[in-house]
Amino acid sequence: MTEEIIIAGFGGQGVLSMGKILAYSGIMEDKEVTWFPSYGPEMRGGTANVTVILSDTRISSPVLHEFDTAIILNQQSMDKFEKAVKPGGVLLYDPNGVIHPPTRKDIRIYKVEGTRAAVEMGNPKVFNMIVLGGYLKVKPVINLANVERGLQKSLPERHHKLIPLNLEAIRKGGEILEAN
């Protein structure tokens, strides 16, 4: 099994940390993992994206021109990465911030209203975990127990009280997932 994922959105949306939690969860499942950010001088507001690769075997290139899954959280990223999904691959997006929905017919497209659900849950910060939940529903590459262990490893201890809320957000994402 090798799953090559691009997660793309604005800086501040939790793109990099979503990737990090996914990668840590992969380690909990004895997978090889690579987390490769596009890093630039900007911190907030600019575009941010990260490639996450999970595999049962040694991982080759961290740089990819096509992906099994694209998780897209703003229009700029849609313009850039819709075309980079492998035929038959998965595109998952949050319609908030995406003006032109994806149009490809040769890939599987899913929607997660993550922004809205996060507001309903009363904590906009869990937005990225809701989206991650949507992804794990479409592609259960890692089981939820290992995601919980991944959260424990990647969050500093002082934030461990937030783990139940994050797990709740992941479950929520699975529930509100819609196939296009």
Partner: peptide
């Protein structure tokens, strides 16, 4: 290089 410096792996 910067890619290996910024990249996270197991």
């Amino acid at each position: 290089d910067g890619a290996l410096g910024q990249m996270m792996e197991k």
